[in-house]
Design a protein around this nucleic acid. Structure first.
Length: 206
DNA sequence: CACATGATCGCCT
DNA sequence: GGCGATCATGTGG
């Protein structure tokens, strides 16, 4: 059955009033770890029934494509599920795991490079329930992002977009990625970034 | 707090 | 047929 639930009211945002702006294509085409860092403090947003709902990203992970054993595109794997990873920077790649959770990624670099940034956690506004957006599965559930959104272009003026705001940047910490112990040496690469002052970060932090 | 486990199913081998 | 880029719950220290 089709669900069309509206996100929690604490996620209501007003991009104009909050002076949020959309990055250019060039922003997403930069080195993946750099994009992952710069996405901390950005908003992932979705328009439902004419209103914008969004959350401030506080935790990301970089996945470096065919040379990264933790990436779905490892060794150039190219299947229907992974295909959106091969799109140009600025597209969305969403996958379904463990039979119940969706995970959202922002594609980086150029078409064919198959690199992406996993959105692991975010925080909402006033009255946001603890852990509403803590963890990639919960983040997608809270915003209503599903595999149906995989492959869409964040820069196409559609209902799913990414916003940034000028100003102070969060203090960042770095660590290995979560849940990729199977990836050999790549499992230890320092590709997880998070806002060290945010209570919404998932997994080991602080 | 640190593990351990079950749920659940699409995807790939 | 096996296993996840996860999460909620339960146990024990």
């Amino acid at each position: 059955m089709i669900t069309n639930r509206v996100p929690h009211p604490c996620l209501l945002i007003d991009p104009v009033a909050q002076k949020l702006s959309e990055p250019s294509r060039a922003f997403f085409r930069r080195e993946t770890a750099t994009v992952a860092r710069d996405l901390i403090g950005a908003w992932i947003a979705q328009r439902r029934r004419g209103r914008w709902y969004g959350a401030r990203i506080v935790e990301t992970e970089a996945y470096l494509g065919p040379t990264d054993a933790a990436a779905h595109s490892w060794k150039g794997r190219r299947t229907a599920r992974v295909e959106p990873m091969y799109l140009d920077g600025g597209h969305l790649y969403v996958f379904f795991v463990y039979g119940m959770h969706h995970c959202a990624n922002v594609v980086t670099r150029r078409a064919g490079d198959a690199q992406a940034v996993l959105l692991r956690a975010a925080e909402g506004g006033e009255g946001c329930p603890r852990r509403l957006l803590t963890g990639p599965g919960r983040l997608c559930a809270a915003l209503g992002i599903t595999v149906a959104d995989s492959g869409l272009d964040l820069l196409a003026g559609g209902n799913v977009r990414l916003f940034r705001r000028r100003g102070r940047r969060p203090r960042l910490s770095v660590s290995p990625r979560i849940g990729v112990d199977y990836a050999g040496e790549a499992a230890a690469w320092p590709l997880r970034f998070f806002d060290r002052d945010s209570p919404a970060v998932s997994g080991p932090s602080r």
